[in-house]
Amino acid sequence: MTKLNAIENALQALQPEHLQVLDESHMHSRGQETHYKAVIVSPHFAGLNSVKRHQKAYAAMGELMQQIHALALHTYTPEEWQQQGVAPASPVCAGGHK
């Protein structure tokens, strides 16, 4: 199982209505399977600020977080996602490029 698949499986604990996990390692210089972006739409985020939402995602990831360098999280309630419908683009890597 790839890390991407493992991340997707772990985040299923949040019962997402929409889940997209992207391997963005190619945008960085730390090697393969190191940088990921996750867009998570879950009713479990209702009433929570972004810090608490991220904590829920980190908790779902558990020990898997030790195996990756970076995880960009974009967390939405279903209502927020219905209004927004798209996560922001990832920035260009600011450090470590060769």
Rank of each mutant, 00 (worst) to 15 (best):
L19H: 05
A10H: 11
A6S: 15
S90Q: 11
Q12G: 04
Y36L: 12
T77Y: 05
A89F: 01
I7Y: 02
P43N: 12
V21P: 01
K3E: 03
P91S: 12
S25C: 05
V41S: 08
G85A: 10
K37T: 14
G95C: 10
F45S: 07
H35A: 08
V41F: 08
A60G: 07
K37P: 00
P88G: 08
A89N: 11
M27A: 11
G47C: 03
V21L: 01
P78S: 11
Q84T: 14
G95Y: 10
L73W: 06
G47A: 05
E33P: 02
E17L: 13
S25W: 04
M61E: 02
E80R: 09
N49I: 03
S25E: 04
E80H: 09
L4Q: 11
L71S: 04
Q20A: 13
H97R: 14
K98I: 09
H97Q: 13
M1H: 11
S42D: 02
E63V: 09
E24A: 15
T34I: 04
L19T: 04
F45L: 05
S50A: 10
Q83N: 13
R53G: 10
E24V: 15
W81K: 06
Y58Q: 12
D23V: 00
Q15D: 09
Q20P: 00
E33A: 15
K52I: 01
Q32F: 01
G47I: 05
Q15R: 04
E17A: 12
T77P: 07
A87E: 11
Q15H: 06
N5G: 11
S29E: 06
R53L: 09
E79K: 15
P91E: 13
L14Q: 03
I7S: 04
Y58M: 07
P16Y: 07
T34R: 15
G31L: 07
L48V: 04
Q66L: 05
L19E: 02
L11H: 09
G85E: 09
Q12E: 11
Y58H: 14
E79L: 14
L4P: 00
A59Q: 13
V51P: 02
A87R: 07
S90W: 01
N9D: 13
G85L: 08
S50F: 03
